[in-house]
Design a protein around this nucleic acid. Structure first.
Length: 272
DNA sequence: TATAGTGTTATCGG
DNA sequence: ACCGATAACACTAT
């Protein structure tokens, strides 16, 4: 399920395979996925335009759209969030199907579009779909991406220190706050905290400068490992997030709890 | 069969 | 203002 690395991969798929194709139809009939737009609103805004650039910040993607005529104004940005179960699928007129989630989740039978919640049809006969069984993703025009914090992949040490500077909130909850730092999900957070040997429930304001530095370096390493390995499911702590598991570094018990509203696993000794 | 879950948003209560 | 808890979304995996 998508965190920053998976979303970046989806963005790349759009960039490679969906830009500069003229949109002739839009299925925006799922009013929950497309909230707050009523059915037809996204369609009316996009038909006749092309996606021109694919952006990402944290787990949010958005595409710039072209003007309807050479002298016209560009269209609104098309924002796509994958939620917990979404992926981009592109079907091409020659029968080729590009599944932007193939590398991180079990395959979906070719041509199974049961869970397509939003789709763009192109004038060449192809289509881009948001396939999202749980319907936790969303599609909207001009998404408020400026509310997001700096991207977790490019945040500077100074920026990271500022994010972790104040408050009594548990450090993991702060890592998951997309308005403070964008892109860290539950698994990336558990892995980075484990690598840095920092307890997920420590109040951020009590972290030492050394701990904050360690955590930032751990986060960078974690993001690099997830991108290189092919998704957050390849992170090294994942097999140990289960009952009875022991920490692969010191063999202490792995503990389970809820931090920031999410299931959290940590080493009872090193992350005390 | 029952339960948990890799995400976000809104809302309520302290 | 800050923070925790809950619900909503609807399906898969164990």
């Amino acid at each position: 399920m998508p965190e920053l690395p998976e979303v970046e991969s989806a963005r790349t798929v759009i960039e490679r395979a969906a830009l500069d194709r003229t949109i002739i139809d839009v299925d925006d009939s799922d009013s929950y996925e497309c909230r707050p737009h009523p059915p037809g609103a996204i369609r009316a805004a996009l038909v006749g335009r092309r996606l021109t650039v694919a952006h990402r910040r944290g787990k949010s993607m958005w595409c710039d759209t072209s003007a309807l005529a050479p002298s016209g104004e560009p269209g609104p940005a098309l924002g796509i969030h994958l939620g917990m179960s979404g992926k981009i699928v592109i079907a091409n007129p020659d029968g080729e199907e590009i599944d932007g989630g193939d590398y991180w989740e079990r395959g979906r039978p070719r041509g199974d579009y049961r869970y397509s919640r939003f789709a763009l049809s192109f004038d060449d006969g192809g289509a881009l779909m948001l396939v999202d069984p749980r319907r936790l993703g969303r599609v909207r025009l001009d998404p408020p991406v400026e509310a997001l914090g700096p991207d977790a992949l490019t945040i500077t040490p100074g920026g990271f220190r500022a994010v972790m500077a104040r408050g009594t909130i548990p450090v993991k909850a702060r890592l998951l706050d997309q308005d403070k730092i964008a892109g860290v999900g539950n698994l990336l957070a558990d892995q980075a905290l484990w690598l840095a040997k920092v307890s997920p429930s420590r109040p951020v304001g009590e972290l030492s400068p050394a701990e904050i530095n360690r955590l930032h370096r751990a986060l960078r390493r974690t993001l690099g490992a997830a991108v290189a390995g092919g998704g957050v499911h390849t992170l090294s702590i994942i097999p140990f997030r289960k009952a009875g598991a022991r920490c692969p570094r010191d063999d202490a018990e792995m503990r389970r709890g809820t931090v920031g509203g999410r299931t959290t696993w940590w080493c009872a000794r090193e992350q005390a």
